[in-house]
Amino acid sequence: MAMFRIWRGSAAGGEFHDYTAEISEGMVVLDAIHQIQALHANDLAVRWNCKAGKCGSCSAEINGSPRLMCMTRMNALPADEPITVEPMKSFPLIKDLVTDVSWNFRVKKAIKPFKPRPPDAADGTWRMAQQDIDRVQEFRKCIECFLCQDVCHVLREHHLHEEFIGPRFFVHAAALEMHPLDVENRTADLKKTQGIGYCNITKCCTNVCPESITITDNAIIPLKERVVDEFYDPIKKLLRVFRPAR
């Protein structure tokens, strides 16, 4: 038997309710939530799909840490105290454990899309070096669970959703910027409208990523370097006096 404290309520308010679940070998938190739903709380709202850490739907905060419920095994949590499960804090609540993450989809639309250079060969194909592909492959692992957005203090504490796109979309921008065929320039957007300067590299996002993407070191810092290189290089700054910035 395990004790659960699950947040129940809507945008108007709510509170923790206590439940118990019978635990068997190999169970994950999502199984316990389903059991509680089936036996004690039929109308408990929880979003889920694949149960294998691939779809990024069942994001929640378990004992205070942003996790996927389907990938958090019961035997990895302390057995002698109640397990708290609550919704993500960076997004508006719909009900119980379900939040409205649609802000993320709006943000994504504002990022300049992939723009490949003209084909290298007459048959319309390109040539890429494996080394260049390996570099961006990591970013493609993202399942859009938005746990990195949830943990980021710029969104969570300061609510700068209108000025800051969050770690998930720096990863997305990095995947495009570092793509060997891409010729678009996104550094001006990153600096001016997407707020990359707000990130002070505390690496919270990297720590919660269920796909183990090295968000801060491999995506955000290289993007920050590009911004610095383009806008804060003293020699370039001098040149800009004579030649207007774009």
Partner: peptide, 12 residues
């Protein structure tokens, strides 16, 4: 039968 309301009600 189900309890609660129509909003995001998995039981319903």
């Amino acid at each position: 039968g189900v309890g609660g309301n129509r909003e995001y009600n998995n039981g319903w």
